[in-house]
Design a protein around this nucleic acid. Structure first.
Ligand SMILES: [Mn+2]
Ligand SMILES: [Mn+2]
Ligand SMILES: [Zn+2]
Ligand SMILES: [Zn+2]
Lengths: 144, 144
DNA sequence: GTCTAATTAGGAATAATTCTTGATTGACTA
DNA sequence: TAGTCAATCAAGAATTATTCCTAATTAGAC
């Protein structure tokens, strides 16, 4: 699912705020990398980000992409997930949320609250596990 | 949680059967690597397996450890998980199951059925997702 | 015991990520 | 608006986990 123009605008404003709040500079490189993620389907490798960024901005180096992505993760502007194969993906959406991975296409889809995943970890707490967070990955095929 | 001697014996028999069923040879290296995992707390990196194996078997090379682990995964004798940091861990227990990761110690603990995790994915199916499997990772601290 | 395909040891190759360093620049100041 | 400087960036080297390659060894069939 792609974001519409309005959502991208809102998220871009948020980036300015988060950078300022962290005392970091607003640079062309940070904006470019962030926008690539916002405009994507949601989950990209560093290399994919670099390629997409390079279309408009061929001078932006891969190590800068890594640098910027790390910074954006640190200030909570984006997220980061690691798939079973070990591939690291940068995630348009920060914060804990669940994923569906299509076993045929490899596509990664966010499962937000409306997706209807019911997860109850209360019994864990009663057994001495202090739960701080949880990540679920569902595998299968998306029909139609 | 470590396995007791009886469980290790049973699992070792299973390895013989799985290797035979797959038409593969029973080698000293395969037995040694498998036993290290059975005797561990459950989840080890390839390097940790190599170090543990090297105590009794210093000639067993790291590339053989990788080879053997891959074979054991392929025949379903062990499992493989990738943590959020990207670390690949080989898992004494094959098949889909959930994990708890202690955010303080890094320890990985299996959550079997008795742990009381309740997961309901039926609503997903109604929304066009054909579920084949699911992996949950819970983060937090184990008390006491 | 012989034979042969499977397996192993050792090292080279690969690939993703991180590190290092000198050049560049965003943002504050006057 | 220009000066200043710490923050940031580009480029490439280094690192590290994993995979690949190949000649020597060996399990298991006969
Ligand atoms: Mn997401
Ligand atoms: Mn397990
Ligand atoms: Zn996501
Ligand atoms: Zn496990």
């Amino acid at each position: 699912m792609k974001l519409d123009a309005r959502q991208i605008e809102t998220r871009t404003q948020e980036l300015y705020e988060k950078l300022r709040a962290a005392g970091l500079k607003v640079t062309l490189q940070r904006l470019a990398v962030y926008r690539v993620l916002l405009q994507s389907h949601g989950h990209l490798t560093a290399e994919q980000v670099h390629q997409a960024v390079a279309r408009d901005n061929p001078a932006l180096s891969l190590s800068t992409v890594y640098n910027v992505l790390e910074t954006l993760v640190k200030i909570g502007a984006i997220g980061e997930i690691t798939t079973d194969g070990g591939t690291k993906l940068f995630d348009r959406t920060p914060g804990d949320h669940h994923h569906f991975i299509d076993t045929e296409t490899g596509e990664v889809i966010d499962l937000d609250d409306s997706a209807g995943v019911k997860l109850d970890l209360n019994a864990l707490a009663r057994r001495g596990f202090a739960v701080e967070g949880a990540k679920l990955t569902v595998y299968g095929r998306r029909k139609k």
